[in-house]
Design a binder for these strands. Structure first.
Lengths: 123, 123
DNA sequence: CAGGATCCTTTACGATACTG
DNA sequence: CAGTATCGTAAAGGATCCTG
């Protein structure tokens, strides 16, 4: 009776492993979270703005990461036809669905610090 | 009146950026999520077990990732003094605090599939 | 301004062989 | 069994210069 086959919902099964791999591939690299985080404020930012906001990034990486994110429809790229072109980047509605993840990760990072600190003191 | 300085709680500020970097560094690499996910079932697993469970991993990577995870106190390593030594790995209570993140990431990965699928059909 | 092209360094990862 | 050592490849990332 206890032995019926169960599809585990909150424990990792094949589907979830795949889903995790997908997510991590989309968000892989040193900068994606940082860029999404910056854009998640909702403001439109230009290339140069991002270059300043995202701490140590260079043009090559920024350019590449933005392309990746756009391709996955997490951000949108709007070109304005001004004299020297202006390009604005903005998070999409779909991109905003990442915010819960980002929050969880940030929360955990803070907990981690506390945990390490406590343990240092005890030992 | 509306202009008081606010420490944003749900929007990325410096502390959160740092926290995110910490978390991502701890969970970086191709295998950590997979290993944690496997161990998050709560069972003690041995090196060979993990080598089988974690899909394409090799001894070198498994060994290295386990060391990283142990160093950060996410898993524990228990050596039993049997003839050929037996070593058991187990998730720690602290390691279990990662489960919400893993769940969020898995959830999002599934949503992502749906999103892509819908968009393909519309266009 | 926005970003592409180029070159170079570093890190990640993988396969295989070997050891207590 | 539970790894380490060694070697080799591929990918990530960085610095700098260049262009419409």
């Amino acid at each position: 009776m206890k032995k019926k086959a169960v599809i585990n919902n909150n424990l990792p099964c094949k589907t979830e492993i795949t889903a995790i791999k997908d997510t991590m591939e989309i968000l892989s690299g040193k900068w994606k979270f940082h860029i999404i985080g910056t854009l998640s404020l909702g403001k439109k930012l230009r290339f140069m703005d991002l270059l300043r906001e995202v701490d140590g990034i260079g043009t090559k990486m920024l350019s590449k990461e933005l392309q990746d994110l756009e391709m996955n429809q997490l951000i949108s790229r709007i070109v304005l036809n001004t004299k020297p072109v202006t390009v604005e980047y903005q998070i999409t509605d779909f991109g905003k669905t990442l915010i819960p993840i980002i929050d969880e990760i940030a929360k955990w990072g803070i907990e981690y610090r506390n945990f390490v600190y406590k343990n240092k003191r005890r030992v």
